[in-house]
Amino acid sequence: MKDKSVQAVNRHQYVVFQIDKEEFGVEILRTQEIHRYTKITRVPNAPHYVKGVINIRGEIIPVVDLRQRFGLESSNIQESTRIITVLIKDYQIGLLVDNVNEVLWIETNAIELAPSVAGGIEKEYLSGVGKIENRLIVLLNLEKILNLEIATNEGAQIN
């Protein structure tokens, strides 16, 4: 069953963004919008990788610093910094990334299972690695990364 549907639609579009030197991708169908950096209101006592909340047209949206989520140093805000809003279980979350590069088609059969660690990130947070020519694009498993149940301080310690 699953194979069938994969073959029927054998390529997907991904928004490709950058954190440090690594390139990551999220399915475009999951993304809502890409925003320039806007002032983030920090939320005291929230999990450490939650940078805070922003207002997008009257909606309050939490912003997750992916670098901190992956146990890296927190982001330096720069000109290229973007916030990608994604939809997870009817719930909008903003991802803070260093740069948004492009939107790419990735063939399903160009996606390999994730190695145990890619881009310094544990396997469980990845849904695979897309290969395009000689680029490696780490595809994120948003459910896992932003799983509402594990979104606690405890779940964040992945070093």
């Binding site: 309050i60 939490p62 719930y91």
Partner: peptide, 10 residues
């Protein structure tokens, strides 16, 4: 406004 489920227990 609610902070949503993600930040419900802050």
């Amino acid at each position: 406004k609610s902070l949503g489920e993600f930040l419900i227990d802050v």
